[in-house]
Amino acid sequence: MSAEFEDVLLYAERPEWADVTPLPQYQGVDALAPINYSAEYQDATDYFRGIVKAGEKSPRVLALTWNIINMNPAHYSAWQYRYKTLLAMGADLEAELRLMDDFAVTNMKTYQVWHHRRLLLTALRSPAAAAAELAFTARVLAGDAKNYHTWSYRQWLLVHFNDDDEGGLWAGERAWVEELLEKDVRNNSAWHHRFLVVWASGVRRGDEDREAVGRTESAFAKDKIALAPNNPSAWNYLRGVLEHTKTPFATLTSFVELYIVSDAAEAPEVVDLDNPAPTEGAQLPCVHALEFLADVYEQEGGEQVAKAVEIWKSLANEHDTMRKKYWEYRIRDGLQGARA
């Protein structure tokens, strides 16, 4: 509860609320599993139910709903009614956003916090406000880099306003997500974001040559794999790029082969920019590389499937025993495919 509400009277004790009939929560006689609310919460929600019943939309409703969501940020009915009240009053929605800034940071795990901002941004129709929101979400993500709601909201801002002008909303996105991956190359939320920016939301300004973009992204993922080979996020992105661009996995065979050896020292000394070698600390062989190579063999089909089966066996029995059932399934499926 914020300081604003400390030491204030209950609504039941305030003369300015005397005209509202509070409505207690009906749960049946001798209710099962009641929540032991504080007196303040019970009082505020009694008055909220009264207000909703009367259909009042006024400044004091904003104060009441603010009080309730401070005690329970997941009270979606209070959020919903607050939003309707803001619209009915023609309230200053920018001011509402600023009021909610600190609140969003404190309660970032709550759906309603982010949905409310989305409703406000939709109503505001202001790209400038959206740009400010990008900065705001970047600050929040700096503290909690994988917050699902914040990421979804940021992605919504980008596609909803879809401002691809020079210096527009999309402009700084790839560089920003690269910064996040510099900080933590294992941040899967950032990888997903990159996929959305580059592949899943149309073509960005300057990205018209899709083949070139494919090469750049593939190279980007390979560099990140070299840095920390046992990082599923980077491998998943690489696979995503290949599948999206319908590029055969076999085009990466020489890269992947660097990661299936049992010791990084065995890797060739020659510097090959297309096929970055694992760093010194890399723990090899890398399960993701083995899996990838088996997929290459399976895609090639015919005699090659036997090689895939050998790899799947080694994954099942040695390198990735937790997924033994899955690798056995892949063996059955692969052999069936080879016969068909």
Binding site: L32, A33, P34, I35, N36, Y37, S38, Y41, T45, M71, N72, P73, A74, H75, Y76, S77
Partner: peptide, 25 residues
């Protein structure tokens, strides 16, 4: 215990999930 004695005050955040508390239990 939850069913008979109710949920402690920290469950106020689940006030909008009372139907869920029933289902989960």
């Amino acid at each position: 215990r939850n069913l008979r004695q109710g949920f402690p005050q920290r469950y106020t955040g689940q006030d909008a999930s009372q139907a869920w508390l029933m289902h989960w239990t």
